[in-house]
Design a protein around this nucleic acid. Structure first.
Lengths: 135, 135
DNA sequence: GACAGTAATGTTATTACATAACGGCCATGA
DNA sequence: TCATGGCCGTTATGTAATAACATTACTGTC
C-alpha cells in the first residue's frame, strides 16, 4: 500500500512545507515557492500533497484550506485510525500538532454511543498562542 | 451583538438547510435550491450563512466545505467557547452533531499545557453510520 | 409626511482552491 | 521487445469564497 520512495515533486513539496516549520501553506503558495524548481501547474502540487497525505507526512488543515508538514511520529495506523489535534493561532498563523490519545478515546466512545464506525478524526482548535498573547 | 430578527435571505437559507435534515449542503447547492425564491448570486447565500453562523444556527463543516443546520440547543457561549463534534458518514453523507463536554474539557486541558488560549474548537469524525454499515 | 441614518439586499467581477481528462516518458521485468 | 505501471506535464474546467460598489427597505425623529 505505502509506496517506496518519494518522487521529485513529492520531495520538493515536502521540503517546502518543512521549511515553513509550523506555518501552514496553501497549495498555490507552495506552487509559487516551487516555481524556480520547475513546477508550473497546480496539479503537480496537489498530486504531491495527496501522495504525502496518504503517507501521513503532511496534513490538510480543513479550516484553512492549507497544508502542514507532519511533526508527529505516528506509531499509529491502529484500528480506530488517527485522532489528530491542531492548535491554530489566528494571530500569527502558526499551528501546533498533537496526537492526543485521550481525545482519541473520547472520539471512540462518542462514536460507539451512536453506533458510528470512525475511520479518521481531526480536531482544529482556533485561538491564540502564548507568544501572541504575550505580545 | 446578536441581532434581533432574521432577514428574508437568512430565513430562506436556514429553512433550506433544515429541510435537508442532517444532510450538509454547499453554498452553491443552496443557491440552486433557492433560485425559485429569487436568489441569484453566491454572495446572497454566503452573507446569510455568515449571519446564521454568528447566531450559531448553522455550522460550517470544514472538511466538506458545506453547511449544516444546527441541531443542538446551545446553552453555551461559555468562556472557553464551543467544542462541537460532527460524525460524518462518508457513505450516505449524513452528519450527526454533538456538543460533548468531556471532549471540550480535553481540548481545554491540551490548550493549557501549551499555553494556548482556545476560542473555538470543532472535531470532525469521518466514518460510517450504523445504517450504512448494516447495508 | 419628509428626512437622515442604518441594516439588508442586489449585481458584477474576481480571487482562491481543487480536479478532470488526456498524453508522454521511462524503468523494469515477462 | 513490448507491455505494464508509476510518475510527470499541460490545458481546461469546476467549485468555493470574497471584493467592491450600487441600491432598496426599515427604523426613528421632527
Amino acid at each position: 500500500m505505502a509506496k517506496t520512495k518519494l518522487g521529485r515533486n513529492e520531495s520538493l513539496v515536502l521540503e517546502a512545507l518543512r521549511d515553513a516549520s509550523g506555518a501552514p501553506r496553501t497549495a498555490y503558495q507552495l506552487l509559487e515557492t516551487l516555481r524556480p524548481d520547475g513546477l508550473k501547474a497546480p496539479l503537480q502540487v496537489y498530486r504531491a500533497l495527496k501522495s504525502l497525505s496518504e503517507r501521513h507526512l503532511v496534513h490538510r488543515l480543513e479550516s484553512l484550506n492549507a497544508y502542514l508538514a507532519c511533526s508527529c511520529t505516528h506509531e499509529e495506523s491502529g484500528e480506530g485510525g488517527h485522532a489528530l489535534v491542531f492548535a491554530i493561532c489566528d494571530a500569527c498563523g502558526t499551528v501546533r500538532e498533537f496526537a492526543d490519545p485521550a481525545l482519541g478515546e473520547r472520539v471512540k466512545a462518542l462514536s460507539a454511543e451512536s453506533a458510528f464506525t470512525p475511520r479518521f478524526a481531526a480536531t482544529e482548535i482556533h485561538g491564540t498562542c502564548a507568544d501572541c498573547r504575550a505580545g
